[in-house]
Design a protein around this nucleic acid. Structure first.
Lengths: 233, 233
DNA sequence: CCGCAGATGTCGGATTCATGACAGTCGTAA
DNA sequence: TTACGACTGTCATGAATCCGACATCTGCGG
């Protein structure tokens, strides 16, 4: 199962000055990011391979090689978003940084809020491309294509209605966990729904008729008596 | 440096000052871009709808409404890259601009080379997503030549109209995924179309008459009831 | 036996699509 | 210019099917 909740985005902070790293790390963690550090280009590339972050913040002046080179080396192996963070304000450096493959170029002194906003803007642009792959859920013999709004078993499409599909997708998204009627109501029917929560039962039953091999004794969509329902393999 | 692609990238330049527009246009055309202009937010939105550019350059201070608002309005229906171009250097404005949905924020006075580099960096990030369309798509027995605007089946060209083709191309570009009427409206009919979304149904039907072997029971262009349509093999 | 949660069946209003007809628009050829 | 056809958008109608609601039944624990 893929991650469900909003996990913090991870940053790799590359700067040779410990003091700057510390200040930036605190500011960025304050903005809700998970921050890893590297003090030079070599470490940065190693860290990138070991645990790819969502965004790289790259200082231009590094002890081993300059940031342009590091950026090009990063680009040779990865499409990870890179933001150049540097004290050099010269326009030629900006152009060189961007040409080296960076996505953005910001100059010190930094305003944390602005850097954070630029990171968000970049992620906003990049995320959708990554998200496409993560939308095929598998539970038991069911394959749930969230984007295609289709559920297949043995390659055969199951004819679910919209509500049934949303219900199944919610349950699959929290596979193994019990979801109460109220939780399902608010997720599938929306927060503004005030009807009887028994409607969940009805749709659970209809869903079982379609996804369970023996609807009379469900193996996937099981009742958690007094609690709700959950989907298991 | 001229851009490499076969077709120049198009920019929409939104600024109320004719003098600035002229300077920027010349500089950007020199960089190899094809530049359209708008003097206010209203014209910008109209131009965007009429002929979506690859990138929008948006000044913050416009006569009718401020750039933040215009940016948000753009974002409501379009993913087009937006670069804020303004004289306001305050960090709060940068954050506000990016939060309004802009991809980048650059301040005047401008260095054309830097602006151009930022445009390229942004396009580099965005293009791959669009690149899917710039190819030859195959769905089932249909071969869709997006650039040539031609669809063939068994080597035989199908006589699709422009709207039918755009509709088919959009669906093929997201093969297997359900596209809602609203998504199709904004992509095929363009940003800001306010007509009845039922028009999609009509064109789907006309498309089916041409691409389906048995239009009464479609196998390729299938209905996702309550959700939209999708194209499958 | 009672009380309760879950399961089932059915019904009718509401949604959602498919379809055919028609009118307006646009480009082109006469 | 006019006439024409292709293309497009709008609408009305009917059919399909969805889904909330209700009534009832079952199974289980106390």
């Amino acid at each position: 199962m893929r991650n469900t909740g909003p996990v913090a985005h991870s940053l790799l902070l590359v700067d040779d000055e410990p003091r700057i790293r510390r200040v930036l790390r605190l500011a960025l963690e304050d903005e809700g990011y998970q921050v890893a550090e590297a003090a030079n280009g070599y470490d940065a590339l190693a860290a990138l391979r070991r645990e790819p972050p969502d965004v790289v913040l790259l200082d231009l002046m590094l002890p081993d090689r300059d940031g342009f080179t590091v950026c090009r080396e990063i680009r040779r192996a990865s499409d990870v978003p890179v933001i150049m963070v540097t004290a050099r304000t010269d326009s030629h450096d900006v152009v060189a940084g961007l040409e080296a493959g960076a996505d953005d170029y910001v100059t010190k002194p930094l305003v944390a809020k602005e850097l954070s906003a630029r990171i968000r803007a970049l992620l906003r642009r990049v995320e959708p491309a990554n998200a496409r792959q993560a939308e095929l859920l598998e539970v038991g013999d069911l394959r749930i294509d969230v984007l295609g709004a289709e559920v297949t078993r043995d390659g055969e499409a199951l004819p679910l209605t919209r509500t049934e599909f949303k219900l199944l997708a919610e349950l699959a998204g929290a596979e193994g966990k019990v979801l109460s009627r109220e939780q399902l109501l608010s997720k599938v029917w929306g927060y503004g729904y005030f009807g009887d929560s028994r409607i969940v039962d009805v749709h659970v039953r209809r869903l079982r008729l379609k996804i369970e091999r023996d609807p009379a004794s469900p193996t996937h969509l099981v009742t958690a008596r007094g609690l709700g329902y959950r989907l298991v393999s």
